[in-house]
Amino acid sequence: MEKTTIKRFGLYMRQNWTLYVMLSLPITFFIVFRYIPMTYIQIAFKKFNLFKSVWEMEAAGNYGFEFFIKAFSNRDFFYALRNTLLLNLLDLVVGFPAPIILALLLNELAFKMFKRVTQTVVYMPHFLSWIIISGLALQLFAPTTGLVNIVLQKMGFEAVPFLNEPTHWVVTYIFLGVWQSVGWNTIIYLAAITGISPELYEAASVDGAGRLRRIWHITLPGIKPTIIVLLIMALGRILGSEFDRPYALGNNLVKGVSNVISTFVYTVGIRGSQFSLTTAVGLFQSVICVIFLAGANTIAEKNGERGIF
């Protein structure tokens, strides 16, 4: 018995060793660039010193939690936390369904050429950096020099403070986010739709189902697992924050809503050379993200869906 197992394993390895060798590359990547750097998390519990190795640094006060206490007693941290949640939730509510709807629309297009062109055009913005988009936003939406506002004023309307009034800014922020990412995120849904058997549609037509009925009863259920997986992953990012988007789009007049955790970490932590504080905030953020991810996954699995673990 034993012997045959070993023999089988040997045979298996002889046939497939190349696969394992190839696997070693990504594994090495993760160890070197993901796991080893994790040892630096301990900076959150230590007094950062540029001239000592991370193992030699002195422990922080309050049983190592000095910098967590410092972060949590900083009012700006809570504003940043609130803004992060606010912007990400709005992004989720508005930005998550958008690519699904777009994918459904594109899928229904009869003229294939038009479909392809549209698809390419809508995913192009994905390749623009936020720095460029914020430059475009200024050219379009600035109160006196922005193209949109100039046109509005010529037509006799008041200028809209797209960028310089907090509520309008949030709308602009969310809208630009959707504009930038909707096309790209559509690709994955379109791929999922392709996987649905055409026979189902034919059968439905025979049964007299109209276009909307087919979308509702065939397409949507067909891509439901994809939607769930992407939703779980989106929930995992609920407290994570991009840096360049709020930083590039924000300005002093809307700091009250545009200052998120990542920009807080940048101004207070990195530019203020408070690296322990920065690491503590980053660790807190990661832990919350993992909790959300695991929570969403559990709920999905409980409801009979495939999770991501």
Binding site: N164, N252, L253, K255, T267, V268, R271, G272, S273, L277
Partner: peptide, 20 residues
């Protein structure tokens, strides 16, 4: 210690908001 940039950016923010 470590307050320089934090405070000066706060200053800029509220002065801008006060002017407008």
């Amino acid at each position: 210690e470590g307050k320089g940039t934090e405070l000066s950016s706060k200053r800029d923010v509220f002065l801008d908001q006060a002017v407008v």
